[in-house]
Design a protein around this nucleic acid. Structure first.
Lengths: 102, 102
DNA sequence: CATTTGTTAGGCAAAATTGCCATGTAGTTT
DNA sequence: AAACTACATGGCAATTTTGCCTAACAAATG
């Protein structure tokens, strides 16, 4: 199995390895949202939110489309959902050493 | 969809967001390995490798079993593979904004 | 043109991560 | 028990990340 760019892989995981960004993913999983909507949900400065979004877009996690005055973001990957369920099962298992998740 | 512990989720992604640790996952995907075997493959100090392994074990990504003098590590999750394939498709798509991955 | 919405860059302090070194520990061998 | 092997752990300095702030800028709208 040939590795894709290791840096690109790492970038994807780094993009996901942050509570606020995971919260944004959670919000976007319910549908397309613009920056100010996201800002209201997660709090904090808009420039900070915009940076989070930019980072995730560069990693390939989300996509953006301009709609009038707003910039609308959406999840770029349908598999992200199963992905997160897998992570949750991992996270739940983390106490037991011998037990496997799936 | 109720969130599992957000911290636990973040921990999983942080554990994956490092080139050496991804390399270790790659190695372990081929079968169980002990610390010194991993050390030979990825280089660096053994204490460093041990810390990487410990971090991934706490996150739930890998499990460990003692076998005589060695500590054997193995992937704790069969879904990690499809997981990584999904990430690769994301990583490959990251230039195009409108195109979705899967 | 003025306003709204968002991006980007720079600066900066606090916090987290990383990796090596030295030391500690548990199981094995002699 | 002493020595050795295979790891784990704590400490520490260097690097990176994070978040807020300020400000400049672009694009769509009224």
């Amino acid at each position: 199995m040939a590795l894709t760019e290791p840096k690109a892989r790492v970038a994807v995981f780094k993009a996901l390895a942050h509570p606020t960004r995971l919260e944004i993913i959670q919000i976007l999983s319910q549908g397309t949202r613009c920056v100010s909507e996201i800002e209201k949900s997660v709090g904090g400065d808009m420039s900070t939110v915009s940076k989070h979004l930019s980072l995730m877009r560069k990693a390939g996690l989300i996509g953006s489309k301009k709609g009038g005055l707003h910039m609308n973001y959406e999840i770029a990957c349908g598999c992200l959902d199963g992905f997160l369920r897998c992570v949750d099962s991992l996270a739940g298992n983390r106490v037991l050493d011998d037990q496997l998740c799936c």
